[in-house]
């Protein structure tokens, strides 16, 4: 980040805080995290994340996967070479036999191994915590796929057709869940979250982990949640309840 941007960001942040304080203490006109104006860069004050509530996720329901495929122009996955940005995992507790269902996607780690290993810097983490692949500099070495602890990445094995204008994708690059960055930057919500809500489950919650007033932060503060492979200390942006 160049110093001018940093200063401008700090100024804007300060101004926003001041305005918030002056309007009415305790009353928020809008969620601060959603306030990214069009044309503004992603802010490091925000940390986008999701909370997956496995107690609400229905076994056999695939709506989040379908919504993701539709949103990003991904063909339905039938082979081991097909891309899957989000998948439903059916779990069985080895001791009790309890069955759990949960979606797994890129965990948008704060310390992403894929970003560490990428030779060209094509794998990167945005200021707001979203982990992406810059397909313009990805050379297709697949080292990030070796490094990802969550099997979250796919390699485009074939020429692509039917790309969405907001989601370019092509043969020979690695890709994964973008947290629907093209929607989030316009104040929207990831498609899987919307689909889950539309199905009446509301098992996925999206929001700013840095904002203590956001719904996701309040839920994480009130119920026990875990991160996948917490032992790796990758500090995932995606949390799970009921695992």
């Amino acid at each position: 980040m160049n110093p001018v941007d940093k200063r401008r960001r700090e100024f804007l942040g300060g101004a926003a805080a001041l305005a918030g304080a002056m309007i009415a203490p305790g009353v928020f006109l809008y969620d601060y995290a959603q306030a990214k104006a069009p044309g503004e860069p992603a802010s490091g004050k925000v940390r986008w994340g999701m909370l997956v509530d496995t107690t609400k996720c229905e076994s056999g329901c695939n709506d989040c996967v379908v919504a993701c495929n539709t949103e990003h122009g991904l063909p339905e996955a039938t082979r081991a070479t097909d891309a899957q940005w989000i998948r439903k995992v059916e779990l069985k507790d080895l001791r009790s036999g309890k069955a759990i269902s949960a979606p797994v996607m890129c965990q948008h780690c704060a310390e992403p191994p894929c970003v560490d290993v990428c030779p060209t810097g094509a794998s990167f983490k945005r200021e707001d915590g979203i982990v992406l692949v810059d397909r313009h500099t990805c050379i297709g070495c697949r080292y990030c796929m070796m490094a990802c602890p969550y099997n979250a990445r796919s390699f485009v094995h074939e020429p692509t057709t039917g790309q969405k204008p907001d989601v370019p994708r092509g043969k020979g690059c690695v890709e994964s869940c973008t947290l629907c960055v093209h929607k989030v930057d316009r104040g929207g919500t990831p498609s899987c979250v919307e689909a889950c809500a539309a199905a009446g489950h509301e098992a996925i919650l999206f929001g700013d982990l840095n904002d203590p007033q956001s719904e996701i932060s309040r839920r994480i503060a009130s119920v026990a949640t875990t991160q996948l492979r917490a032992d790796l200390r990758t500090d995932n942006g995606v949390r799970y309840r009921g695992l």
């Binding site: 996955a77 995992v89 759990i100 797994v104 099997n151």
Partner: peptide, 14 residues
């Protein structure tokens, strides 16, 4: 091994 203590299955290698 993404889910220690669980038996996992999915359409993506789990």
């Amino acid at each position: 091994e993404i889910f220690p203590g669980y038996e996992a299955r999915s359409a993506f290698h789990d």
